[in-house]
């Protein structure tokens, strides 16, 4: 089970229970599927939308089942292996992903009002306001990244994979994953431009 630690905005594994070994036996695969399906589905849905996610998430696990004998726990976590399959499938749907980002980038925020300066980051209502207000800008920034940058960034942010797990998922060297993530973060920051991370608002450009 994973628990969100709001103070540091990180995800901590507070319960290590789960599938950790090989998944060739039907019971093991079933457990792996039950444990990971919702998370993988949600990752895909965030990238390409719910409709396509139903197909692709199903395909991830059907593919995983057919290739379950090739999964080697010693080479990386089950999650990184599953997200690797998901990432490969998503590559054939880059246009759908791009279209979704483009649409989000053109959305009119539900409220143009940014949260007040004193708004608590932990206030759920404000979080929703923040999300709604910032979504078009974030979508625009993501849309401007190249595919490699977006992949590595979203595997880290949404799938919560570590550098090492991203390396396994993308079949690249750990150092490559680390540097790619670093560059992707920098590129996203550059795209976000005048964003004030303290107050979660975009600073008005000086004319």
């Amino acid at each position: 089970m994973r628990e969100r630690n709001w103070s540091s905005c990180q995800y901590l594994v507070v319960d290590g229970a789960g599938v950790t070994g090989r998944i060739e036996a039907p019971g093991d695969f079933e457990a792996a599927y039950r444990e990971n399906f919702a998370e993988v589905y949600r990752f895909i849905a965030r990238r390409v939308g719910s409709d396509l996610a139903e197909d692709l998430a199903a395909e991830v696990f059907a593919t995983a089942y057919r290739r379950r004998a090739t999964y080697q726990p010693s080479l990386g976590s089950l999650r990184s292996w599953l997200y690797g399959i998901a990432t490969n499938l998503l590559r054939t749907h880059w246009r759908a992903e791009q279209q979704l980002l483009d649409l989000d980038a053109r959305l009119t925020p539900a409220s143009q009002e940014p949260p007040g300066a004193g708004a608590s980051f932990f206030d759920a209502a404000d979080e929703r306001v923040i999300a709604a207000t910032l979504a078009p800008r974030i979508a625009g920034a993501l849309a401007a990244l190249n595919r490699d940058q977006r992949e590595v960034l979203l595997l880290h942010a949404w799938a919560e994979l570590s550098h090492e797990e991203i390396a396994v998922a993308l079949k690249v060297a750990p150092g490559t994953a680390r540097s790619r993530l670093s560059r992707a973060r920098a590129a996203l920051r550059a795209q976000l431009g005048e964003f004030d991370f303290d107050h979660w608002t975009f600073k008005e450009r000086q004319s």
């Binding site: 905005c9 599927y33 965030r46 139903e54 998430a57 999300a131 979504a135 960034l153 973060r185 979660w200």
Partner: peptide
Amino acid sequence: TDEIDLLRRFRDDLPGPGRAAWDRA
């Protein structure tokens, strides 16, 4: 906070898989 925190809010309100998604899988 940083850009990763910001990203985590984006589309964070999408629901998990519904019955149709599980059935499909």
